Amino acid sequence: MNQKQYDVIVIGAGAAGMMCAIEAGYRGLNVLLLDHAPKPGAKIRISGGGKCNFTNRNVEPKHFICSNPHFVKSALARYQPDAFIERVERHAIAYEERDKGQLFTLDGAGQLVAMFRTELDWAGVELQLNCFVSNVQKGSDQWQLITSNGSLQSQKLVVATGGLSYPKLRASDFGMQLAQQFGLAVMPSRPGLVPLVMPARQQAWWSELSGLSLRVIASTARGPEFDGAMLITHQGLSGPSILQASNYWFAGEAIRLNLLPQIKGIAGWLQELKQQAQPLSTVLKQYWPKRFVQAWQDKFGFDDDLANYSQIRLDALAEQLTAWSLYPEDTAGYAKAEVSLGGVATDEVSSKTMESLKVPGLYFIGEVLDVTGHLGGFNFQWAWASAHACAQSL
């Protein structure tokens, strides 16, 4: 059986794993990058509708969910978006900036994967795909891995196996199981940046409106507000504002929608419409799709003539328009989730090196950690930054 010695073995050839292996290789280390998938960078290839939102110009710690909000600060400060943008430009990859600082490739995410493949070669990293790890043990001074490609040994072991989102891409909880094997705490995993499913008894109403989009502010009891598009699906709600809010939603809780974020001072606005005798449905069609206006009118039976409204009824309408509370039944699950929340507890890991505080020589980077970014390129920036921080300490 093959037995080979490396300075570093990185398990997981996704965004964080490739980045870490490259940076470690550039430092002169003998690096093996392995993955059980047949191709590297599977999540990069499909993200952003195939265009990959690879970073954001405006990255701050507030854009991340973590039980320790200070954990992300060190890595993010030491590898900022400009550093990755420079890398992309060095490979002549065209990109565009969209809303709120989001950067996407112009000609497809495959170019980013090709960039990483090129740099893996430049850095002298050995890449083994279709390689399954069946056992990991730590000796006094080295790691021993039993794999489908034989027995492998290394001084350092980096776990970059991601989370549970996109099971079709062979996502697994391998990294979290490995952490638990060596006595590290793991925060429970759940789908993140995921559509929300409404109760079955309500789905006929939503299904009739499927495909419609409108601007809302979505929020939950425990998270910030997110202003953006809401997309109605056959089962419930999706779109950027809903995906963002889903990170903070738990079963049994409400999601609150402001359906008129364009209007500041809704009570005064309604009073003005009342005085002007403007039909409410006519005005709402300036902000909502026509079918949504009609469905809303049918569902709640509002009177088009605001002259018929008492002050109490007008106040209730204002509340309904700006703080509509809905109670989803569930999320659409890992198959539709862009990320998974939870993972290896950050209290177990050095924020400067990503090394386990309990097990010397064991490192965790990227999504396998209990760090989840908002929508908009933040999760990829965490992959690059945590990988870079780790590689500098190997």
Rank of each mutant, 00 (worst) to 15 (best):
D330P: 07
Y327R: 15
A337I: 04
L321V: 01
A387R: 02
L326T: 04
E348C: 08
S393P: 08
L357M: 12
D370F: 11
D347F: 12
G343H: 03
T353C: 05
G343F: 09
S356K: 06
A335G: 07
H388L: 01
E367D: 05
N308F: 01
N379R: 02
S340M: 01
N308S: 14
T346N: 02
E367W: 06
Q320I: 04
P360D: 03
R313S: 15
A387M: 08
S325K: 15
Q320E: 11
S386R: 07
L306N: 09
L369G: 03
V371T: 07
S340T: 04
I312Q: 15
A345C: 13
L369V: 08
G333R: 10
V344K: 10
T346H: 02
A307K: 13
A332I: 11
W384G: 10
L321H: 12
G377L: 00
N308I: 00
V344M: 05
A387G: 13
A345T: 01
T331K: 13
I365Y: 08
D347A: 14
A391L: 11
T331H: 13
T346E: 07
A318Q: 11
A345Y: 09
V349G: 04
F378N: 00
L375N: 02
R313F: 05
S356D: 09
L375I: 02
T353M: 07
E367F: 04
G342R: 04
I312L: 13
V344L: 03
I312D: 14
G376Y: 10
T353I: 04
A391W: 12
E319G: 12
L321F: 15
V344T: 09
V349P: 03
A345E: 09
L317E: 01
G373D: 00
P328S: 04
D370E: 12
R313A: 15
A389T: 05
V349A: 04
